[in-house]
Design a binder for these strands. Structure first.
Lengths: 117, 117
DNA sequence: TCGCTGGATAGATGGATGTCAAATTAGAAG
DNA sequence: CTTCTAATTTGACATCCATCTATCCAGCGA
């Protein structure tokens, strides 16, 4: 289940911060691209709101009118973005969120006052 | 400079919240799609970090190795996502961020504890 | 070992998207 | 009115992406 994390040093400085370099912009855009699909957002929502903190893939296929491979593809994209992490236990695979990744994004949209005076 | 805002009722409930409906997911995904391009992220960054709170389009074209129409296109996407707003004054057009829109996004990534016990 | 099931991968395809060149609109100045 | 500049729109093109079908891999049990 190892998968290269392309977005390691991404973000942390708010969008209104000093200057967003081209490289940082590319990395950040990658994360947002992973979030730019309704199915992936719902998948992430289901995983993030799970009572046990994790969700079996077998429970993620049902709610969607999509084939298994498609769901698998979306989970892979979320995984590559570093937003979720998966583990195989026996026959089933379980996914959970990567908390640091989500809380980091939160700080991006802070605004510095917008003092008009 | 009027432009339909497709994302009006989007967001507010955190991603780890109850259940993300399909419609909400589509709207939210639209906002993230607008943020999923490096050029647009840098544009938003420049606008959000402007001293005066606004930036002339004429100052946004230079930093990029792109043509005017392309920059204009990206600004339109950000505008349609409700992230920025533009105003024409004489010959020039000035863009500024829509603060509510950015601060809203911030709350999306809050996590409820992740209590493993 | 064989077969069954859950999940991932590979390849193909239709639709979306970033980019540019050319044409168009909006103001300002002669 | 004409012309020049700033910015957007239009149309075209290459690329990317979500989805599918078919295939393959990993565990479990008989």
């Amino acid at each position: 289940m190892e998968l290269e994390d392309v977005t390691a040093p991404a973000c942390c400085a708010p969008l209104s911060g000093p200057v967003l370099g081209e490289e940082e912009a590319v990395e950040l855009a990658g994360v947002f691209k992973a979030l730019s699909d309704p199915v992936r957002l719902r998948l992430l929502n289901m995983i993030a709101s799970a009572e046990s903190g994790e969700v079996c893939v077998c429970d993620l296929t049902g709610p969607f009118d999509l084939t298994g491979p498609t769901i698998s593809h979306h989970l892979k994209v979320l995984r590559q973005a570093g937003l979720i992490d998966g583990e195989r236990r026996g026959t089933w695979v379980y996914y959970r969120v990567v908390p640091e990744r989500l809380t980091r994004l939160s700080g991006l949209f802070a605004l510095p006052a917008l003092a008009s005076a």
